[in-house]
Amino acid sequence: MNAQESLKRRARWRVPEIVFWLVAFGALFAPAGKHLLLNEIAILALFALSLDLILGYAGIISLGHAAFFGAGAYAAGIFCKLATPDPTAGLVVAIVAAGALGLATSLLVLRGSDLTRLMVTLAVALVLHEVANALPEWTGGADGLQGMTVGPLLGTFDFDLYGRTAYAYSLAILFVLFLLARRVVRSPFGLSLTAIRRNPLRAAALGVPVHRRLIAAYTLAAAYAGAAGALLAQTTGYVSLDVLEFQRSADVLLTLIIGGVGWLYGGIAGAIAFKILQDVLSSSSPQFWMFWMGIFLVVLALVGRERLAGGVRGLFARMARQ
């Protein structure tokens, strides 16, 4: 086995991956009823994928990732009201806006320990939340951004009540951005991030410019989070302050931890588990669903994800390494 063949094998698609995407797209044709939930799952999955890019690959822990989600949501909402209702244009604007915010704040997370990063990212999100609250003429403040009328997708498909168009839109964006992320983490750039996460000093001793790579990764992840925020704003036609709330940052971190950090599918697996649990628990015990969610998380932490998932993920990961 020489290096050329081994490197090629590293980038190959595995069967379970292909099956997963076929099922996800197949769900578009399922009878109406669950597409609103599926849309929420796709958006949360994209948001968690974004966090995985910095936490799982670059090793930057964040408790304020909602800053970029919220920035994307407000950018898409305001752009829709002021410029054009076309969702694709709004999505691009949101990605650029959140990416720019990521680039600007990336300098804050370059140095320091994990604890410093937790505090700094948390603080950035808090500041942004207050800014949004203090600018009601732009954001609607505590009342939320109202009067957003999102145009048809690609000028053709109207967003319907059952969420089928919404799910198709969110899933397509998730898929495209997932493909891009998959490419990025297997690229030379991605390999250098992997090395930085394990040991930044060692990576520098191998000639990796650590700071520049971290800035690029953080900016990319922020742009992804902005896309997720824009999808939420456009498919619900509404933006409220909770897009920037701490709860959202905490939820996405939980989602990613449930699904597993550092293998790209963790965000998707976590989003499916988190949203379905939330859906089941909140319909069976509307007042206590958070209680059961908490119990589940404690069990997950004690028993371990691999055993709880019946080794499914382990199997998946083994196949991914082959």
């Binding site: 490197l7 490419r183 990025v184 297997r186 690229s187 030379p188 750039f189 991605g190 390999l191 790579r213």
Partner: peptide, 10 residues
Amino acid sequence: EGTVWHRPVG
């Protein structure tokens, strides 16, 4: 090639 992001290591 460290900044190359659009193709696999190889």
